[in-house]
């Protein structure tokens, strides 16, 4: 039985490719020094849908996600091979600017990490950086719109200029989302955005993700299978640096093809 499974992990089951892909990943390998973390991954992330990445700890989901906006460039020993293209252009081309890429592909992190500045300054930082607002009124407008989109505006409208680190955890995370969408990225990557939040704050974030899907392409890493089932349209199951199975979320959760996927989503996998 075990040998059977080991043999089967070298290929990806399901449908890794979609017609209308925003990001396509082909034959991607990632190495940390000599250790290989991702093995020959192929995946499409569809436009205006939420793609969930699930799998046990240490399976390479976060590494995979961080490669999509070249956050792993900051780790000197990390090396990425293969093709990752955003709208058909390889983001790892030597002449491509990672700064521009990160403006187009935003990221929300596991732990809320607002800057130790005011709420307003946190959201205004990105637009100021890229010169997106010509004057104060435009900037105000961007800040308010972003906060509204993140569903935070009503809670903070009276303390836009107080310190952001005084907000609650869930509010901080929504502030980070507002900060990300303030520069109107095309893709938002979320690395376990609700893992440090309570169920109520989590529910708010999940609703928000569903809302954001209309305008953005989203890839989300999550440890909660329920969350993946609730917010995503497509799900990819990672195991030891490989994608074992990928497909429509409903199909993955109701009728998984691969034995490892089934074991994981039914909780039989440790």
């Amino acid at each position: 039985m075990t040998t059977n499974i080991e043999q089967q992990i070298n290929e990806t089951w399901g449908q890794p490719f979609v017609e209308d892909a925003k990001i396509s990943i082909r034959n991607m390998d990632v190495f940390y020094a000599d250790k290989q973390a991702i093995f020959d991954v192929n995946l499409d992330i569809g436009k205006h849908e939420v793609t969930a990445l699930i799998g046990p700890s240490g399976c390479g989901k976060s590494t995979f996600l961080r490669c999509l906006n070249r956050m792993n460039d900051t780790i000197p020993i990390c090396r990425v091979a293969g093709d990752i293209s955003l709208d058909g252009e390889n983001i790892y081309d030597t002449h491509k600017d990672p700064v521009l890429l990160r403006a187009r592909v935003g990221m929300v992190f596991q732990k809320p990490n607002p800057f130790p500045k005011s709420v307003y300054e946190n959201v205004a930082y990105g637009p100021r950086l890229h010169g997106l607002a010509l004057n104060r009124a435009e900037l105000d407008d961007i800040v308010v719109t972003s906060l509204k989109k993140a569903g935070l505006y009503n809670e903070v409208k009276n303390r836009l200029h107080s310190v952001a680190t005084g907000l609650s955890g869930g509010q901080q995370q929504r502030l980070c989302i507002a900060r990300t969408i303030a520069i109107s990225p095309e893709v938002i990557l979320m690395d376990e955005p609700a893992s440090s939040l309570d169920p109520i704050a989590t529910a708010i974030i999940e609703e928000l993700i569903d809302e954001l899907r209309k305008n953005y392409t989203i890839a989300i890493v999550t440890h909660s299978m329920q969350q993946a089932a609730r917010v995503s349209q497509r799900t990819a199951y990672f195991h030891l640096g490989r994608i074992i199975e990928v497909g429509e979320t409903t199909q993955i959760f109701t009728n998984p093809q691969h034995e490892l996927t089934e074991n994981y989503i039914t909780g039989r996998f440790g």
């Binding site: 906006n69 956050m71 990221m107």
Partner: peptide, 15 residues
């Protein structure tokens, strides 16, 4: 300085 601050700024497209 917490690395999460660097990540936050980098993620927004700061050089």
């Amino acid at each position: 300085v917490s690395p999460s601050m660097r990540e936050a700024a980098l993620g927004l497209g700061a050089s």
